[in-house]
Amino acid sequence: MHRALIAGIAIAILCSVVGLFLVLRRYSLFGDAIAHSSFGGVAVGLLAGVYPLWTAYVVSIVSALVITRVKDRFNISGDASIAVLLSSGIAVGLVIIGLSGGFTLDIFSFLFGSILLVSVDDVVLILALTGGILIVVLLLFRELLYSTFNEEQAKVSGIPVEKINYLVVFMAGLTVVTSIQLVGVLLISALFVIPNVSAIMYGKGFKQTAIISISFSIFSVVAGILVSYIFDITPAGTIVLISIGLLAGTMGIKSTGLLSKN
């Protein structure tokens, strides 16, 4: 239970920070696509007899970088490239499972997460990744924000925009595969997107928006884990429902004008 909470909080922070850049780049569903391609990665791992999480990292990140390259090279739109990535990951997984005569993948925990079963090793990995990615984000804050705000102007200011784009994709890949343990493949977008959509309505400046998003995200995850523990249900659904509740609340408050911007 403690382990679940610690891992959950770390993942909440990670998803909201990385997700904010994706949402603002109109790349909201990219997390979803990476999550689906990790299905192919897991299948490769099971087939090769390697710990599936590692192959999921490699396959997801490599295919996300490749699709980004292809998208830029051939001028494919963002949403179409997401669709390609998403379906090809699933397809690879299905074919491999078919060829190997099927194996026992714990489909349920892969699809919906299994945060309550997280091991000490997993927690250490999650904390290390969270720390690493946050440090990178802080160090390259101006570059990340500027190239997200306006690519052309960032280029004119001498920022290596293409490299920064790949960095965002790389961080998204790491984050998604790590977070699958918490909410599973199907609901990963929720953690990436919902707290950020709420926060963008409240926050004025960028840092304020990021802090609000992180707070919403942590609140949803902690409350979700506790509630699901009490009622003995899967945490993923509860977490997402709570964050949707926060979003609905935000919209309610906004439309009544209580939160008028000056």
Partner: peptide, 23 residues
């Protein structure tokens, strides 16, 4: 450089100071 038309998302959560700080 001041571009002909600066393009950005209308609801991008940055203040005027945030934008100037990018420079």
């Amino acid at each position: 450089y001041v571009p002909q038309k600066p393009i950005f998302e209308k609801n991008f959560p940055v203040t005027v100071k945030d934008v100037v700080r990018m420079g």
